[in-house]
Design a protein around this nucleic acid. Structure first.
Lengths: 341, 341
DNA sequence: ATGAAAGCGCTAACAA
DNA sequence: TTGTTAGCGCTTTCAT
């Protein structure tokens, strides 16, 4: 089971390897009859060029690695789809790397870049520090980040405007008459937290509502975390009537907790999440959520990165900050008078 | 930004490239002091071996491609996780390929194998025919399939026992007193259909229930398809009291349809799906579903494939047929007397 | 224990 | 228009 090489084709066709290579790569400087003859042999031998040989010679793999924290999160999958939709038509292959929520795994994947297995690497909400990522960029590696801005000139990024997003939610909730609104954040390390907290506070400020630290808690971006956090909030007896969770998982946890505590939604408790994931539409009432244009983020960043590799110069925008939209559903709309009492 | 090569390291350390290569690959035939000296240089230069060069020389990529029909399906993601858990510890990299439900895309990914970009390829519920896949195996390529058996000696596979699975469901439903049970299949092309239909018929047979063709319909494995199929079934006025859907998506469609038609679940209509996906636990009542040990399937197949590559002989089992378990929930349990009337 | 050198499959610069 | 040939970075046989 030995693959035919370009040599075999050349021999069989009675031409040199250079000619075969030219035909294969669509060079115009080839006699039509020669071309025909070579293609004939290529077909009859079922010859397919060896990708490794090509890569070694051309110093290009035409491959981009996408490192996601967890392949089971819809958030990540949507981004991947966006990247694919841009990369595939441009003949770039995508290799998806699942870091399984382990920072050490994520770091391991960086060697794909260093070992030249891929031409570029996209990190989705990386766990590495800005300084770590800067090192790679400084050494000339092509990488981009989705979900935050490392601040490095050579690292493009796509992210949502968290402050705007949060204020949008706050405006909605305050408009519904809520004054005690809890904020459920994710990991303390995520930059999103800081920005969303900022938007939360700004929203309160504008409505001349006081900031109450006891209305802020952490749910670690998981359903269980959101559930536990809400239980803590509830026991503090702060008189809260609404919860803004930094993602849908936590919002689902709150939804569940309210169910168990017999707190009617939205009458006694309004809930808003982020991601507008499918699940939010299957629980009753459905959960209002902010929809981020994830595919778009993938499309824009991949496009930018490919441009960067081909043009060899950093032209155009480096930061793609994208607006999201709030999808209002039953969990935060239509409180009945009765319920409010 | 030029990477240091093994040559640079050799020069710097005052040894030959062969020695550097030996050190890097842990050969024992190297003087301890030489070894130390080389490693010192490797560290100081931040040298990382070029993967492409290595691959070309060794004729191995240590990479396995996993081609899934759709990366957004949890079914696929679970299998991927299983494969990763086996492959990564054995130093194999995984490249995930999303065929986006397009047969031509799936076929394109086969060139990864032919072009030697990967050492092996795993197909999850492929759209290609057995004959097509056989060609690759006959030409010595290493591939495996999850979800069906191609019947080819050199193509290992992992799959669930569909007949058993279906009969399990039928036994449960018949045990609950149902006699008119609809069967909702997926694409007509999927082999699963045939086997599940077989199990359905056997289940009826054993219980001495008649097979009614008008109780079988197709829902294309989608929620919308399941919804539409149920609507058709319902209009046929067959007096059905239970639906077995070949996957959870279709089961959710039936669930939705019942909601709109005001058919109480499980009192007037029992529902059972397959996959035991997360969503089945968020709707009310929760949907009974068959849980397939997907991760296990990935683990077993990947292990078999890697063995096959290393041992160069086909020892051991080729077909991994795995039992699934039925998780009974509200949608098919506890019909009240009243409801039955 | 170490080094020299061949060669994996390919492209492209240079020659003819 | 076509051919010859030098590498891309690495491992490994064969000498030493």
């Amino acid at each position: 089971m030995k693959e035919p090489t370009i040599m075999d084709v050349a021999r069989q066709a009675g031409v040199s390897v250079a000619t075969v290579s030219r035909v294969l790569n669509g060079s115009t400087l080839v006699n039509a009859s020669t071309q025909e003859k070579v293609m004939e042999v290529v077909r009859s031998m079922h010859y397919t060029p060896n990708a490794i040989g090509k890569q070694l010679r051309s110093q290009k793999t035409m491959t981009i690695a996408v490192v996601v924290p967890d392949i089971s999160i819809t958030y990540c999958v949507e981004i991947i789809k966006g990247i694919e939709n841009t990369a595939n038509p441009l003949h770039y292959k995508i290799i998806i790397c699942d870091a399984q929520n382990k920072p050490e795994k994520e770091r391991e994947f960086m060697t794909l870049l260093v070992s030249r297995t891929v031409d570029a690497l996209i990190l989705v909400t990386p766990s590495q520090t800005d300084a770590e990522l800067a090192t790679y960029a400084d050494n000339g590696y092509t990488l981009g980040v989705i979900g935050r801005d490392t601040g490095h000139d050579a690292i493009p990024c796509a992210l949502t405007d968290n402050v705007k997003l949060t204020r949008q939610v706050m405006t909605h909730l305050i408009g519904q008459g809520h004054t005690r609104i809890a904020f459920l954040s994710g990991f303390a390390t995520a930059i999103d937290n800081y920005e969303r907290l900022e938007g939360y506070m700004k929203g309160l400020q504008e409505a001349r509502l006081p900031f109450m630290p006891e209305l802020v808690d952490n749910g670690d971006f998981t359903e269980e975390g959101g559930y536990a956090a809400f239980m803590r909030l509830w026991e503090r007896n702060t008189g809260l009537t609404a919860v803004f969770a930094a993602n849908d998982e936590m919002a689902l946890g709150v939804h569940k907790a309210c169910g168990e505590l017999n707190i009617p939604i939205p009458d006694r408790m309004a809930i808003v999440g982020v991601d507008n994931s499918r699940l939010t539409n299957y629980v009753r009432p459905q959960i209002s959520s902010v929809e981020q244009p994830l595919q778009t983020m993938g499309v824009l960043l991949a496009g930018k990165l490919i441009d960067q590799m081909n043009a060899n110069e950093q032209a155009g925008r480096r930061i793609f900050k994208i607006d999201s939209i709030l999808v209002v559903k039953g969990s935060s709309l239509g409180r009945t008078e009765e319920g409010q009492g």
